[in-house]
Amino acid sequence: MFWQQLVNGLTLGSTYSLVALGYTLIMGVLNIINMAHGEIFMIGAFVGLYLVTYFEVNIFVAMAGAMVTSALLGCLMETVALRPLRRKAVSHLAPLISTIGVAIFLESLALNLFGPQSQAFPTELAAVQMQLGPIRISLVQIIILGMSFGLMFVLRFWLSKTRVGKAIRTTAENIETANLLGINTNKIIFLTVALASGLGGIAGVLVGLSFNAVEPTMGLSMGLKGLAVLILGGMGNITGAMLGGLILGIAEVFTVAYGASSYRDAVAFGMIILILFIRPQGLFGKRQGGRF
């Protein structure tokens, strides 16, 4: 029972980590919270769903499609809602409100396009299950775990070792200095937003697979979890986002398994309050200094 729940928690948590990574990347580079991330994630889930059901493509192709669509959507958001604000000196709340606008727009768009009902992925994938000692694990869970951990490690490596990754980290450290050093920061910001949104799109397909439900309102609840992880792990901290997501996922699954199943969505918020009281910089955050 315990091990089974742990695996379930890890699966759920790894999707939270992916969502939180999107928030963290944008937080790190642009220093804003992208409230539309949950909705971009939801659109990604729908694109994946429609690719699988109507075009009958492989699930991995669907994920790639979802990633590309979400990344494009992210770029569009950056051009329309974020870039105009950077040129002017506006209150730090302006980008937050602007992205809330994007979020509301996308959610309503999805409601009009896809309808309010929850739709499911074809069931062949969920039916395959394996018995590993005391644990029963489905193929879907393996795909989710493999994809999310794989992406997280690739991202980690990419950020720390490659030239572009270093440029992103420099921009996160200090945007003006990065500019002076000859980094095209506008390009880096574009790239980061696309990357974050693309990760969100993949996470959307993975979550749609694991819950077997895709609906327009999934963006808001998932976005909230991602925000909780962001605070839990420390703002702009990539390791924090990865581990924080896993912690939240495991905590939620155990809450459901050992008692209060209907209060599952309240766990994330309870953790935020607790963290803000005890360790406001987040579990893995430093008080000051470099973000990544």
């Binding site: 329309v80 105009p84 602007s98 606008g101 994007v102 509301i104 727009f105 996308l106 309503s108 009009n112």
Partner: peptide, 15 residues
């Protein structure tokens, strides 16, 4: 389309 209009309004006002 009310919420869509609201969303667009938020973005436009901020910009």
């Amino acid at each position: 389309y009310r919420l869509m209009i609201y969303g667009a309004l938020l973005v436009t006002m901020m910009a």
